[in-house]
Design a protein around this nucleic acid. Structure first.
Lengths: 214, 214
DNA sequence: TAGATTGTTAATCGATTAACAATC
DNA sequence: TAGATTGTTAATCGATTAACAATC
């Protein structure tokens, strides 16, 4: 089982893509899939796919490949996609509100149970069926509702302060949507979303073109 | 100049972080910064920072480091952050609407000039001051308004079709918010946003813990 | 059986880090 | 000047790919 704590981040990241793909295959009623087919579909090599899947407690079958429903189960487990996570959203600007309402989050088991904003004019207003609360209530809410994940959707200048408050309140992980680096103890993993940064990567590639090799 | 087409993606990705950090420093009136200070701030090594910055047409000064305003200028240029990009948003669900309204995009020069949705009930409604249009109008709008980037905010099952339509219409790059792999010709770069996938990476780390090494 | 595909080892490739001479 | 910091080369590290024996 300690295999699961030893996976490189690059592998974990690809496992999320395998899961999304395998879920589609299962819905389509496809029972078996080869490493080559997965690779072609996601733009990888079959070697990488087999290497990645060898981290799982799951074996393929010579000549047939991997059984989709078994693989889905094992990926779901290793990615914690079977767990119901409780999240709080800090920041009720357009981005925060939108993600609080984004169906894909709750569908995947990431439930937003509270939303906060420092703007007094917003406090008391509703986002979906959640009432916007002031940031002072973060510790009490996180403790009472046993919140797992804090989502940071505030301006960059406020992000570290919000992170500190969430960490002190006891969240186990952070999703950072702000365009700044967050410092956190090693016990609290931080994932950066970086939508705007992605656009800058895209704009570089459009402006200067792409390397000639694959 | 062809240096700029030869940068590894990992370097480009870090350059976006340097830019965000340097912009803050410039606003704070800080004139010089060393590779070590940048590294400490972003959780990197000074060696990586110097290596990355050596791709730029910009030199530091022994003993003083890098001049922030010059570095900002050069990073802005190489990331295309000085260019005004025109984008269209396809999909007017909560995520699409939110990002269309997200201030950070337009502030960074990524202007959404049209929004589309296949749902007839939504067509004609407004998002900000844009009227939602049907997907058939994509080719005409992209051509007329000289749109650079298409943003895909539709369900996974519709994503590839939307991508094909945007590519045929002449966009130069795609930002994919859907949880699925998009196939595109090499001339049209695709960046995946993967907010939900990020949460699955986070949930793995929370569930199984983190590798003991750094 | 014959052949397709896995699982795994070894080779390659690329990215990060260390080290240090140059320099301001 | 002395010392801090760059720019760059070489070493290390890790991730990807190739290759192939095992196998169903």
């Amino acid at each position: 089982m300690s295999k699961h704590t030893d996976m490189p981040q690059s592998v974990i990241s690809r496992l999320t893509r395998y899961l999304a793909h395998i879920q589609t295959l299962c819905l389509e009623g496809i029972k078996w899939i080869s490493s080559r087919e997965i690779a072609d579909n996601l733009g990888l090599t079959s070697s990488t796919v087999r290497q990645d899947l060898s981290y799982l407690d799951f074996s393929g079958v010579s000549k047939r490949g991997y059984e989709t429903s078994g693989l889905e189960k094992v990926l779901t487990d290793v990615l914690g996609a079977d767990v119901k996570w409780k999240m709080v959203m800090v920041g009720a600007g357009n981005l925060g509100k939108a993600l609080a309402l984004h169906e894909e989050f709750s569908r995947r088991g990431f439930n937003i149970v509270a939303i906060f904003d420092a703007d007094k004019a917003k406090i008391g207003k509703k986002v979906g069926n959640l009432e916007i609360m002031g940031p002072r209530e973060i510790p009490a809410v996180v403790a009472e509702k046993k919140v797992d994940i804090g989502v940071i959707a505030v301006p960059a200048s406020a992000a570290q302060g919000v992170a500190d408050m969430l960490i002190m309140s006891g969240v186990k992980g952070l999703l950072n949507l702000a365009l700044t680096h967050i410092v956190a103890p090693r016990s609290v993993p931080v994932i950066d979303s970086r939508v705007v940064a992605s656009l800058l990567e895209l704009s570089h590639t459009i402006k200067f073109g792409r390397r000639s090799d694959h």
